[in-house]
Amino acid sequence: MTRAVIALLGLLLAGPALAEPELACQVPEGLVQADFAMPRVADAIAAKSLEIAVMGSASSALTGTGGASKSYPGRFEAALAADLPGVTVRVSTYAKPRHSAAEMQGEIPAILSAQKPALVIWQTGTADAIRGIDPEDFRFALDEGVEALRKGGADTILMNMQFSPRTESMIALSAYADAMRFVALQQSVNLFDRFAVMKHWNEAGVFDLNAATKKMDMAERVHECFGRLLARLVLDGAALTRQERKAND
C-alpha cells in the first residue's frame, strides 16, 4: 500500500518533469510542409554556411531577459544548427514594432547588402491589419518585396499572423491572410501558416491561448515550437530542391 502510494506520488512528480522537455509542437499532417523548393537554402547548406534574416514586427521578438535567445528566431537558429551538424547557421532578426509590410519592404535592400542571406523569413500582417492599411497596398508591398528578395539571391518564407483568440473579433485579419496566401502562391514561396498552427494548438489544448498572464513561460514555449517548425519547413524545402534537381538530371 505504502509502496503504491509512493509509486503514485513518484508518477505524479515525474509526470510533468517527463512531459516538460518533450514539447508537443505537433501539427496536423501537411500544415507545415514545403510546397516550393528553396534552392538558395540548399546551396548554402551544401556550402556549409547558412545565413538567415528574420524580418518582422513585434511578434517576432519576446521582451524581457534573454528575450532574443528565447524568441523564435533564436530557437529556430538553435534547432537548425542541431539538425545541420557541420553547417554554420546564423539567424539575424530585424523586428520593429508596428512596422507595416511596406515599411519592411523599404528595408530589404539594406538587409540584403548587410548580410547576403540565403533565406529571409518575412513575418507580417498584424501591424497592417491594426493600422487599417489597404489590403491591396499590403499585397503590392509583399509582392514587390518577395520579388526584390528573389533578385537579391534569397529564398523567402512568408509568416502570417498569430492566432489571438482574445482580440479575434477586434482585428480583421482575413483580407491580409488571404493576400499573403495569394502572394505566396503567385511567387512560389512557402507560407508558414502561423495562424492555423496556433489555432490548432488552442483547439487541441496544447496551449491555452486565452490565458491572461504576465509570465513568459507559455510565450517562450510557443516560440520554441515556432523555431522547431520553421527548421522543419526549411529542411523540407532544401530536401525538395534536391529531389527536383535529381529529377531534372
Binding site: 501591424a127 482585428i171 491572461a212 498572464t213 504576465k214 510565450a219
Partner: peptide, 12 residues
Amino acid sequence: FENPLYAEEMGV
C-alpha cells in the same frame, strides 16, 4: 487581458 505572447496584438 495581458499576455507577453500578444504584445503586438495589444496594439489594437
